[in-house]
Simulated assay, not measured.
Amino acid sequence: MRFGNTAIGAVTVVALCTGAWLLANGSETNAPPQPSAAEGRADPVVGRTAARPLPPSPPDRIRIPAIHVDAPLMGLRLTTTGSLDVPPAAKKNLAGWYEAGTTPGETGTAIVAGHVDNADGPAVFYDLGALKKGNTVELDRLDGSVALFTVDAVEVYQASRFPDQKVYGASRRPELRVITCGGGYSRATGYQGNVVVFAHLSGSR
Rank of each mutant, 00 (worst) to 15 (best):
A170L: 10
G190V: 06
S145I: 04
I67S: 01
H200P: 01
D70K: 00
N25D: 08
A20M: 08
R63G: 07
D85K: 00
G144H: 10
L131M: 15
R172C: 07
V11N: 11
L76P: 11
A123W: 08
W97E: 04
A7Q: 02
L94M: 03
R77H: 13
E99H: 09
H115E: 12
P58R: 15
R63A: 13
N25F: 09
L94K: 01
I8Y: 06
A159C: 06
A42D: 13
D140Y: 06
A130P: 05
G193E: 10
V69S: 00
D120P: 09
V13D: 12
Q34K: 03
A153F: 01
L78A: 01
P32A: 09
A31H: 09
A123S: 15
F125A: 04
I111N: 03
D127I: 04
G193R: 12
D70C: 04
I179S: 04
G169H: 07
A113E: 09
L201F: 00
I64F: 08
A89H: 08
N194W: 08
G19N: 02
A42K: 12
G169Y: 01
T103D: 08
K133W: 09
G190D: 02
T107M: 05
A188N: 14
T189L: 14
P174Q: 05
G82V: 00
L76M: 12
C181Y: 01
N194I: 05
P35F: 07
R41E: 11
E106S: 07
K166V: 06
L142V: 11
V178N: 00
D140Q: 13
A89E: 11
E138C: 10
G183N: 05
G129H: 07
P33Y: 04
P56M: 11
R173H: 14
W97P: 01
D70N: 06
D85E: 08
G9T: 06
S83E: 13
D85S: 12
G169N: 02
S145R: 15
T6N: 14
A31G: 08
K132D: 11
Y98L: 15
F198H: 14
A188K: 13
E106Q: 15
A153Q: 03
L84W: 04
A90D: 05
L148C: 11
A10F: 07
T29R: 13
G129Y: 07
G184D: 14
N25L: 09
L22V: 00
L16E: 02
A100N: 12
T136R: 07
T79I: 01
R48V: 10
V151D: 00
R187I: 12
E39T: 12
G9C: 09
T103G: 00
N30G: 15
N25G: 10
A130H: 04
A188R: 14
A51N: 08
T12F: 15
Y185P: 10
G101P: 04
G134V: 03
Q158L: 12
R48Q: 14
P72M: 02
Q34A: 07
L84T: 10
L84Q: 03
T29S: 15
P56V: 02
E39A: 14
V45T: 10
T107K: 12
D164C: 09
